[in-house]
């Protein structure tokens, strides 16, 4: 049995230890907001927070995550879109197909938690997730908008 804490809920799961966290979240836990894009830590579609740090869950065997670590997925961020990053995303109508956006939002919230006032250059360097639809400029603008509102 593997025990995980996801979005403040504790799950006891029957999975092989080498199963990537992504697939445990999607298939055993049933939270499908976290996406599969590449499986090799390249695209960031599978980004979740582990103890607040943005982590590509497709490349993490579930056995390396302890039950003390707090996993947060897009569903746990704020279901009613109250998080300033979600608000900024809504305000600037960021998503196109939207498939990458769970990962983008999780990467952006982790970035702002660690660095509430990132420079444009820091945003460019930190935000390495792929968006095939090409929403990068709106993502960047939304992070700046969220940074401003969070800083009050």
């Amino acid at each position: 049995m593997t025990r995980l804490s996801i979005n403040d809920v504790v799950y006891d799961l029957d999975v092989e230890p080498e199963t990537p966290l992504l697939w445990v979240i999607r298939e055993q836990v049933g939270l499908t907001g976290t996406k599969y894009g590449c499986g090799v830590a390249q695209c960031g579609a599978c980004t979740v927070h582990i103890d607040g740090v943005a982590t590509r869950s497709c490349a993490i065997p579930v056995s390396t995550v302890t039950e003390q670590q707090k996993i947060v997925t897009i569903e746990g961020l704020s279901p009613d879109l109250a998080h300033p990053v979600q608000k900024a995303w809504l305000e600037l109508d960021v998503p196109q197909c939207g498939y990458c956006q769970s990962g983008q939002i999780m990467a952006a919230t982790a970035l702002l938690n660690a660095n509430p006032r990132p420079t444009e250059q820091q945003i460019r360097e930190e935000m390495t997730n792929i968006c095939r639809c090409g929403t990068y400029n709106r993502i960047k603008a939304a992070i700046q908008l969220a940074s401003n509102t969070m800083a009050g």
Binding site: G33, T73, E75, L81, D93, I105
Partner: peptide
């Protein structure tokens, strides 16, 4: 105008084909 399909793309609620259960 804002897109009609944005909110559910921001909280994981949008069900894509790959998410079908």
């Amino acid at each position: 105008l804002k897109r009609l399909d944005t909110p559910e793309k921001l909280n994981g609620r949008q069900i894509y084909s790959i998410d079908v259960k």
